[in-house]
Amino acid sequence: MTSWIVSYDLKDVEGSQDYQPLWDYFEAHGAHRVQESLWFLSSSLGVRDLTEELGSLVHKQDRIFVSELVKNNFWQAPLAGTYDWEKANPPSR
């Protein structure tokens, strides 16, 4: 399993209920919200497959960014539970 950083820009803010499949995906896969639109997610999918899977859950005009979480990182005031999630899903490199 690889630990990933997932960030997004959702363009249809008023229709946020349309994004329930994305929130459900994050919940079902044990993702952790680090900031308002930044999540950690552990998955066996590769970066392209994961990006395409997440992209299928949002509108075409929305933006999705996925990158591997690596050991060299630091946070200022992440949401509660971030350090615990990273301990449980440590970066592989």
Rank of each mutant, 00 (worst) to 15 (best):
V66Q: 00
A77D: 14
F65D: 06
K71M: 12
L38D: 13
F74K: 08
I5Y: 12
E53S: 14
F40P: 00
S56C: 07
D12G: 05
N72L: 09
M1Q: 11
R63V: 15
N73K: 14
L50I: 00
Y8R: 02
L50T: 08
P78E: 15
Q76S: 15
A77N: 15
L45R: 07
Y83T: 15
L38R: 10
V13G: 06
H59Y: 13
T51I: 00
E36M: 12
R33I: 12
D12T: 06
E27P: 02
D62M: 12
S7G: 14
D84Y: 11
V6Q: 09
L45H: 10
G30R: 03
H32E: 02
Q20A: 11
V47Q: 10
P90H: 00
L79G: 03
L38I: 11
D62G: 02
L45T: 07
N89P: 08
L22M: 05
H59D: 15
V58C: 09
G55T: 11
N73R: 15
I64S: 06
I5D: 03
E36T: 06
E68M: 12
E86C: 15
A31P: 01
I5M: 09
K87V: 08
Y25W: 09
D24M: 01
N72A: 08
Y8A: 13
P21A: 04
Y19W: 08
W85N: 07
K11T: 12
S16V: 09
R33W: 06
A28S: 12
L50D: 00
Q61V: 13
Q17N: 10
A77G: 15
W4G: 01
S92L: 10
P90C: 07
E36Q: 14
G30M: 08
S42I: 05
D84T: 14
V34Y: 01
N89H: 12
K71W: 14
G55W: 07
E36V: 10
D62A: 13
E36D: 08
T51M: 03
V34E: 03
Y8P: 04
L57T: 04
R63H: 06
H59V: 05
I64C: 01
G15V: 00
W39S: 06
L38M: 15
R63T: 12
M1G: 13
S3F: 03
L57Y: 06
P78Q: 04
L69H: 12
A80G: 11
G55F: 02
L50K: 01
K71I: 10
F65Q: 03
P91H: 09
S42N: 13
W39F: 08
N89D: 09
S44V: 04
D49A: 15
L41K: 00
W23A: 01
P90K: 11
N72W: 05
L41P: 02
D12R: 09
R93S: 12
S16G: 07
G15F: 02
A77F: 11
L57P: 07
D18G: 02
P78T: 01
D12L: 13
A31W: 04
A77T: 14
S42M: 09
K60F: 12
L79D: 00
S44H: 09
D49F: 06
V47T: 04
R93Y: 14
L57F: 11
L69Q: 14
W75P: 05
L22W: 03
Y25T: 06
L38E: 10
A31E: 07
P91M: 06
H29I: 09
S43D: 05
H32R: 10
H59W: 07
Y25G: 00
L22A: 01
